[in-house]
Simulated assay, not measured.
Amino acid sequence: MDRFLTPDDLGKALRQDVADGLGTRPRTLPAKWFYDERGSELFEEITRLEEYYPTRREREILAARAPEIAEATGAVTLMELGAGSGEKTRMLLEALGGTLRTYMPVDVSGDFLARAAERIAEDHPGLRVRPVVADHERHLALLPGGERRLVVFLGGTIGNMAPAERVAFLSALRATMNDGDALLLGADLVKDERRLVRAYDDARGVTAEFNRNVLNVLNRELGADFVPERFEHVAVWNPGDEWIEMRLRSVAPQVVRVPAVDLEVEFDEGEEMRTEISAKFRRDRLDAEAGAAGLRIDHWWTDPDGDFSLSLLRPA
């Protein structure tokens, strides 16, 4: 397994993000810290919830379009950013069987990544599976290359970035691409506010547990003394930015200590800290942001209800 992230690298990044995000108001934390082993397991559970449509819709598009994607790209190398369990990618692996030689899953969670890669290697004995532990927002230029690459970024994860961050990320990715390479991008689409909020605030409370789990990460890694039960899960639609915000709301006045960054954080009753944004898209926004990054949308697919999109982008 290639490693561009060590536990020490992750620790430094976490300390910096916590110092920056909790040291000022409004309080924020980056969504990537959700995904320790427990967080990854909880997210897999979320993807199976009735309210959480994105995974189902993306899977429907892949099932219908994987042969078309394979024919359009003829990929020899498949690199998946933020690979997670890699379950949806299996449809692409099957469709690309005639040309594909290397599958390169990239994720920050090394243990979870290793187990997922082992399962895929067992199911595809002729495929070279090369897992890479890296932060796709920081290490794009360092990731291994490959012949005729299809870079896959699924799950609507692009929406966890603010607009300027998205363009910067796509620009950095474009800088690594050759003329024959392509990017398969999953993006959730703007829809009824009530459906969006339900998708991030399910009746069983799995998303609430997932959200609060980030506090367990800070307790374990930074010696913080968060009591997760003292924070309520909140999901709201921001119509101006067209994104969902997940927040944690303090249920009472409290002081939390984070010894690893020498920080005492005072929370007022009702004060919220933002833990995730999940932007929803329209085709014209994706066209504009891709163009700003030197990419063009070559193919555009949605599910029959227009809930979710997959687009195939190439260097402009």
Rank of each mutant, 00 (worst) to 15 (best):
F43A: 01
E44V: 10
E45H: 10
E45G: 07
I46D: 00
I46V: 15
T47P: 00
T47R: 00
R48L: 15
R48V: 12
L49A: 12
E50A: 13
P54C: 09
T55S: 09
T55R: 00
T55V: 06
T55N: 03
T55W: 01
R57W: 05
R59T: 15
R59F: 12
R59N: 14
R59P: 05
E60N: 03
I61K: 00
I61L: 02
L62I: 06
A63I: 02
A64L: 05
A64T: 11
P67G: 12
P67A: 12
I69E: 09
A70E: 13
E71P: 02
A72G: 08
T73F: 06
T73A: 11
G74L: 10
G74P: 08
V76S: 11
V76H: 10
T77F: 12
M79Y: 06
L81D: 09
A83T: 00
G84T: 01
G84C: 06
G84F: 04
E87G: 00
K88Y: 06
K88A: 11
R90V: 14
M91Q: 14
L93P: 08
A95V: 08
L96R: 00
T99A: 13
L100W: 03
R101C: 02
M104A: 10
D107I: 05
D107Q: 03
V108C: 10
V108L: 15
G110K: 07
G110S: 13
D111C: 05
F112G: 03
F112D: 07
L113T: 00
A114R: 10
R115L: 14
R115I: 12
A117E: 02
A117R: 01
R119E: 15
R119F: 08
I120F: 08
I120L: 13
I120V: 14
A121D: 01
D123V: 01
G126V: 06
L127S: 06
L127R: 04
L127D: 08
R128L: 15
R128Y: 12
R130L: 15
R130T: 15
P131C: 12
P131N: 07
P131W: 11
V132A: 11
V133F: 06
A134S: 08
A134M: 09
H136K: 02
R138V: 12
H139L: 10
H139M: 09
L140F: 10
L140W: 08
A141K: 05
L142E: 15
P144N: 04
P144I: 04
R148M: 13
R148S: 07
R149I: 08
L150Q: 01
